Computed example of a mutant assay.
Amino acid sequence: MYAVFKRELFSFLSSMVAYITIGIFLLVSGLLLWFFPDTSILDYGYADLAGFFSLVPYLFMFLIPAITMRSFAEERREGTYELLITKPITLWQIIFAKYLASLVLVLFALIPTLIYYYSISKLGFPEGNIDSGAVIGSYIGLFLLGAAFTSIGIFSSALTKNQVIAFVICAGLCAFAFLGFDYTSQIISLQNVEVLISNLGINQHYNSMSRGVLDTRDLIYFITFSSMFLLFTKIIAGGKR
């Protein structure tokens, strides 16, 4: 499993796609946070990263599909998938190795954004006037959101040999998982049903963690969500195998 993980990770890092994708993510998030008037933290007037954490999920809808689209699609297009499954390794190990490699790249994209926390902490009056607990909780929520989207990306890549199609499927599923249930709940007028449908979506659980509240129900939700899509990936990849 480690060999597949290392191969997958170095395959990403040896291509320009990973660097360009992460670079665009950091550039756009930096512009939105510091320069664009409607979202700039400098115009907001408070030492708070709430705006950043509300914008990143939408950037993830493009970043993560770009990272994961080649996971299985590239293997099947080049014919190396057949060689891979003949190795003494289980299908679960292959899926999990690819999942972890993609998740590490998402983590690489998030680490440089810690400079935003440091900068805002220094700019606060008095210096350090920022809710560090809320920021930590938000980063945990953001990582779990990335893990959920990555599981969708791995599943989407297993559906097709075409990377572009895998990207589009992943972006669409991520958008629906994050926003679709909220929009659906607004259509239904029954309050109890509305709350139930809304809680099925990622947005409700992510917003809860973005406030710095670490609830075990939210943790269980994200773990279950990611596990479910990895199971779907096994069913798809196992069928093609």
Rank of each mutant, 00 (worst) to 15 (best):
L59R: 07
F155D: 06
I223K: 00
M16C: 00
F72P: 07
T160D: 14
T150N: 08
L63W: 02
R77T: 06
S138W: 06
I140M: 12
V4Q: 06
I85N: 06
I223H: 00
Y19N: 07
T150H: 04
S210T: 11
G180L: 11
F60Q: 03
V135W: 01
Y139I: 05
A73M: 02
G153W: 03
S121P: 03
F225M: 02
T224F: 01
V56F: 01
N203R: 13
T160Q: 14
L196A: 12
I188Y: 08
M1N: 11
A158I: 13
I20Y: 04
M69S: 10
A166M: 04
G30M: 02
D38G: 01
G124D: 06
T113E: 09
I85H: 06
F52H: 11
I236H: 00
D215R: 09
I136F: 12
L219Q: 06
F53S: 12
S15N: 12
E75Q: 02
L42R: 13
L144E: 09
L84V: 08
I165Q: 09
M1G: 13
Y58W: 13
I89A: 05
V56W: 01
M228D: 00
G172I: 04
M209V: 11
Y44M: 07
A97D: 10
R217E: 13
I202P: 08
A109F: 04
L145R: 06
L110M: 14
E194H: 09
A171D: 01
E194M: 06
F60T: 05
W34D: 08
I154S: 08
G201M: 11
T224R: 00
L55C: 02
